[in-house]
Measured scan of single mutants.
Amino acid sequence: MQNSHSGVNQLGGVFVNGRPLPDSTRQKIVELAHSGARPCDISRILQVSNGCVSKILGRYYETGSIRPRAIGGSKPRVATPEVVSKIAQYKRECPSIFAWEIRDRLLSEGVCTNDNIPSVSSINRVLRNLASEKQQMGADGMYDKLRMLNGQTGSWGTRPGWYPGTSVPGQPTQDGCQQQEGGGENTNSISSNGEDSDEAQMRLQLKRKLQRNRTSFTQEQIEALEKEFERTHYPDVFARERLAAKIDLPEARIQVWFSNRRAKWRREEKLRNQRRQASNTPSHIPISSSFSTSVYQPIPQPTTPVSSFTSGSMLGRTDTALTNTYSALPPMPSFTMANNLPMQPPVPSQTSSYSCMLPTSPSVNGRSYDTYTPPHMQTHMNSQPMGTSGTTSTGLISPGVSVPVQVPGSEPDMSQYWPRLQ
């Protein structure tokens, strides 16, 4: 039975679970980093996980050691009161100082060594604690504590007292930064006198190289990059290397530039699409467009005044059976039934097929058609009795279509119309 579990990581490298990497692998990681390889490249070359490479390099940059820390136990506290007071002093002298600059000053002034120097995250935590204590304490208590930490007896009751030896409130920041720059020169002199001055200088240079600022491109470089971006948004590694040799930039910087440029292009394309949609959409909808001609068919113009009344309900007709019959029939052209047409008796099958359309009241044959006459024609229609054979009435077949029909004066039988409509 094995005491430890061995495995293979996602890159194909072998590791022992819970145990640190061998010293030979750690040394190779540092050597590759000094030669300029990126952590992701080191991870692929040595088949070590990216997190492990970053952790080893980060500890090497901070402490200069590649040895693993002790497994188990607690780390001794490195942010001692003396170190905290120095950090507060540096922050007062130059409020814009960075944590890694404070760390360098602690090393250069001999406050800490490589073994007990606090990390950048520890210094940031100390600065946050100082800021929170400043908010919790009152103004007087804060000034007393700062005077105690600074070891001075001057008056701290006013704002300019934060910067000793100065009279203009805006000047101390520059003086403090100048003092810090002077301390940086002392850093070089002190570290050069040490035993491991060369190694420390190499480590600091490598650290500065990794902690780079934003790349500033010249106009020629920007023009070359934009020209390549117009050709393709995704250049391959050969195109990037050719462009890197042409404009004297690292291939990694060119790759990052193209990634950022593609993101910018997507944002601009989104804005262009929004403007295009806004320009195509009308600002207001016309009133006429809300009524579609496919839904509402136009009603033909009436030929006679009587045809303006298109349904039985508008003429005072309360018989719903006839109203439904007229509205359900398709529109037909106007025609006239003459008196000489043969009077065919209704076929029983045809009569039964339209039995649902006729009223059940037996008085329908005896009703006159003056009910369908509009009010303004009552006088004219009353002067001509319906009993004469020459009287013409208008029957409504569908809305908007008038059918003048000659009705025999002897017997106005409704059943004569249905064979004609089939």
Results as ranks from 00 to 15, higher is better:
57 L>K: 03
136 Q>C: 07
64 G>Q: 03
53 V>E: 00
2 Q>E: 11
64 G>I: 01
132 S>D: 08
71 I>P: 15
75 K>Q: 05
22 P>Q: 04
45 I>F: 08
9 N>T: 05
5 H>E: 08
56 I>G: 04
114 N>V: 13
32 L>M: 12
53 V>S: 02
25 T>Y: 05
39 P>Q: 15
39 P>G: 14
143 Y>G: 10
57 L>R: 03
91 K>W: 02
112 C>H: 06
109 E>P: 05
72 G>C: 05
31 E>T: 07
81 P>H: 07
107 L>E: 10
26 R>D: 02
30 V>G: 01
113 T>S: 11
5 H>D: 07
138 G>M: 12
149 L>G: 13
112 C>T: 08
34 H>D: 07
70 A>V: 08
31 E>A: 09
90 Y>D: 04
45 I>C: 09
109 E>K: 12
120 V>L: 07
56 I>R: 00
80 T>R: 07
143 Y>I: 11
36 G>R: 07
147 R>W: 11
106 L>N: 00
145 K>T: 10
13 G>S: 02
32 L>V: 01
80 T>Y: 04
132 S>A: 12
70 A>L: 07
14 V>R: 15
29 I>N: 02
14 V>M: 10
62 E>Y: 04
117 I>L: 14
90 Y>L: 13
10 Q>W: 04
54 S>H: 10
65 S>R: 05
45 I>D: 09
142 M>Q: 12
51 G>Y: 03
60 Y>M: 00
142 M>D: 08
117 I>V: 15
135 Q>A: 15
53 V>T: 03
130 L>I: 10
39 P>K: 14
42 I>C: 03
120 V>G: 09
97 I>F: 12
136 Q>S: 13
57 L>P: 00
68 P>M: 00
92 R>F: 13
145 K>P: 11
143 Y>S: 14
90 Y>I: 15
8 V>S: 04
86 K>C: 14
16 V>Q: 15
11 L>Q: 08
101 E>L: 08
78 V>F: 04
19 R>G: 02
79 A>D: 04
16 V>G: 03
115 D>E: 12
38 R>V: 01
146 L>K: 12
67 R>T: 09
59 R>G: 00
110 G>V: 09
20 P>H: 02
46 L>N: 00
101 E>D: 06
71 I>W: 06
89 Q>E: 09
14 V>A: 11
121 S>T: 04
8 V>A: 03
11 L>G: 06
133 E>Q: 15
86 K>Q: 08
44 R>Q: 07
14 V>I: 09
82 E>P: 15
142 M>G: 14
96 S>C: 06
60 Y>F: 15
138 G>I: 13
39 P>L: 07
39 P>I: 11
53 V>D: 00
13 G>V: 01
104 D>L: 14
81 P>N: 09
87 I>M: 07
136 Q>P: 10
3 N>I: 10
6 S>W: 15
44 R>A: 07
100 W>N: 07
44 R>P: 01
24 S>Q: 13
20 P>C: 02
3 N>A: 13
145 K>G: 12
63 T>N: 04
23 D>L: 13
101 E>T: 05
116 N>Y: 09
71 I>N: 13
82 E>V: 12
66 I>H: 07
89 Q>T: 09
65 S>H: 07
136 Q>K: 11
42 I>N: 01
4 S>W: 10
5 H>T: 10
50 N>H: 02
43 S>A: 07
46 L>Q: 02
119 S>G: 03
138 G>E: 11
114 N>R: 13
106 L>I: 06
89 Q>L: 09
115 D>P: 13
2 Q>K: 15
142 M>K: 11
50 N>S: 15
82 E>I: 14
4 S>G: 12
49 S>P: 06
122 S>Q: 00
63 T>L: 04
112 C>W: 03
80 T>V: 07
25 T>D: 05
143 Y>P: 13
125 R>S: 05
7 G>P: 08
29 I>H: 00
125 R>I: 05
140 D>R: 13
40 C>T: 09
25 T>A: 08
128 R>N: 00
32 L>T: 03
115 D>R: 13
131 A>Y: 08
98 F>Q: 05
146 L>Q: 14
31 E>C: 05
102 I>H: 06
138 G>D: 13
107 L>F: 12
74 S>C: 03
42 I>H: 01
54 S>T: 09
141 G>A: 10
26 R>K: 01
44 R>H: 07
18 G>Y: 00
